[in-house]
């Protein structure tokens, strides 16, 4: 899209950003607009505030009376009851932060857009903190040997975060699909979107019911298939996880 967007289109993009529902082209367009007009962030914040007002419309239900005293007492005597201290150690926090930073840097993605694509970088942190999260390094094969990236599989939450680069855009009617090899089965995880410049940063839901959570995923595969509901990985395998 060339020239300045209409005010209506700009509003749509801002609302889509706040709601986390921009498509990849729209996200790219909005990223450029934000770089050109950083003051847009104020209007974005206002829309975020509007969205944050929604819970005021809920039926008013009072919390139990003992909750207030439990909270105030907990901070007066910050001993064993402090749940925050049970959270991951600073070392783990640093690891998570640096993984997030590496994701952003490796893909050359502005952090602002990173937050858009994943709704929030906290998504990544949350996913990584789950005990059933597995990080796979993944490499291209054949024609796309330079493609590389990582996939985070969060089995507990049935989500996968896919971060890849140097991926060619698929032809019309085709799409990239992620598959997990579990035991002797190859399970279809889902289709993901290609962003601009051959980069992928997408979070998809994976079919939790298909996994036996006691069996390890031995390998991840990425194939190019019809965008319509493939049952099996039929075409050439484009990328595989390192074993």
């Amino acid at each position: 899209m060339s020239g300045s967007p209409t005010p209506e289109h700009l509003e749509e993009l801002m609302a889509g950003y706040v709601l986390g529902n921009l498509g990849s082209e729209e996200a790219e367009e909005f990223r450029k607009l934000l770089i050109k007009n950083p003051e847009l962030i104020q209007e974005v914040n206002r829309l975020q505030e509007v969205l944050g007002l929604l819970p005021y419309a809920l039926p008013q239900v009072s919390p139990p009376q003992h909750l207030r005293s439990a909270i105030v007492e907990a901070v007066k005597t910050p001993v064993k009851t402090n749940p925050i201290r049970k959270l991951p150690t600073p070392g783990w926090g640093r690891v998570v932060s640096s993984v997030v930073a590496v994701f952003a840097l490796a893909l050359g993605i502005n952090n602002y857009i990173l937050r858009q694509e994943l709704k929030n970088t906290k998504d990544v942190i949350t996913v990584m903190q789950h005990p059933e999260t597995h990080l796979f390094s993944i490499k291209g094969k054949g024609n796309i040997a330079t493609a590389s990236g990582s996939v985070l599989m969060d089995i507990a939450a049935d989500k996968a975060i896919i971060a890849l680069q140097n991926i060619p855009t698929p032809a019309e009617g085709q799409a990239y699909w992620l598959w997990a090899v579990v035991g002797d089965k190859t399970i279809r995880c889902g289709q993901f979107d290609i962003g601009s410049n051959g980069k992928v940063l997408d979070k998809i839901s994976i079919p939790g019911d298909s996994y036996d959570h006691n069996t390890e995923i031995s390998q991840l595969l990425i194939t190019l298939e019809s965008s319509q509901d493939p049952r099996q990985p039929s075409r050439a395998i484009m990328m595989v996880s390192a074993s």
């Binding site: 039926p59 009072s62 139990p64 402090n82």
Partner: peptide, 30 residues
């Protein structure tokens, strides 16, 4: 009330809503 009401709406369980409300306010403190 706002935090508890929202927690209850999403979680649909009063004990979990109570726990989350406590977590949110302690988070503010710590």
């Amino acid at each position: 009330k706002l935090v508890y009401g929202l927690s209850l709406r999403v979680l649909k369980n009063s004990q979990e809503a109570e726990d989350l409300t406590q977590e949110i306010f302690l988070n503010l403190w710590y």
